[in-house]
Simulated scan of single mutants.
Amino acid sequence: MNHNKSYRKLGRRPAQRKAMMKSMTISLIQNERIETTVTRAKELRKFAEKMITLGKKGSIHNRRTAFAFLRHEETVAKIFKELAPKYAERNGGYTRIIKTDVRRGDSSEMAIIELV
């Protein structure tokens, strides 16, 4: 059973998993749409929505918190200048996951995750 498990391990060690989530979050925010597996998309949703919520609050502390996780100045600037005003009236639910087909190589379910 999966009781009291708050995240997916994704077959990675903790440092690799964190690095993958960082890079996927940066890619999602810059491109506003990426294609990945369903499991990774569901896990990525947590990180992306947290970054946008930090952008909506807009303080210096939140900017530094976002930068401490992402370590990418252009992405942090986009969150605070473009995405935060766009989602100012929205209370969460900034991402959408659309299931597509299966990958030919290993038959894993693919999905598109995009910003609403």
Rank of each mutant, 00 (worst) to 15 (best):
M1W: 10
M1V: 11
H3M: 05
K5A: 00
Y7A: 11
Y7D: 09
R8Q: 15
K9T: 12
L10K: 04
G11W: 01
G11C: 05
R13Q: 06
P14L: 07
A19S: 13
K22F: 00
K22H: 07
K22T: 14
K22Y: 03
I26G: 07
L28R: 09
I29E: 01
Q30G: 00
N31D: 14
N31T: 12
R33L: 14
E35T: 15
T36W: 09
T37A: 04
T37H: 05
T37E: 10
R40M: 04
A41K: 08
A41V: 07
L44G: 03
K46N: 12
F47A: 12
F47W: 15
F47K: 10
K50D: 07
K50R: 15
T53P: 04
G55T: 08
K57P: 01
I60Q: 14
R64Q: 15
A66I: 03
A66T: 02
F67D: 10
F67I: 08
A68M: 06
F69K: 03
L70Y: 03
H72T: 07
A77L: 08
K81I: 09
L83M: 08
A88R: 15
R90M: 06
R90G: 01
N91M: 14
G92A: 01
G92F: 03
Y94A: 02
T95V: 03
T95N: 02
I97D: 05
I98R: 13
I98Y: 13
K99V: 07
V102D: 06
R103P: 06
R103M: 12
R104S: 13
A111R: 02
E114N: 02
V116F: 02
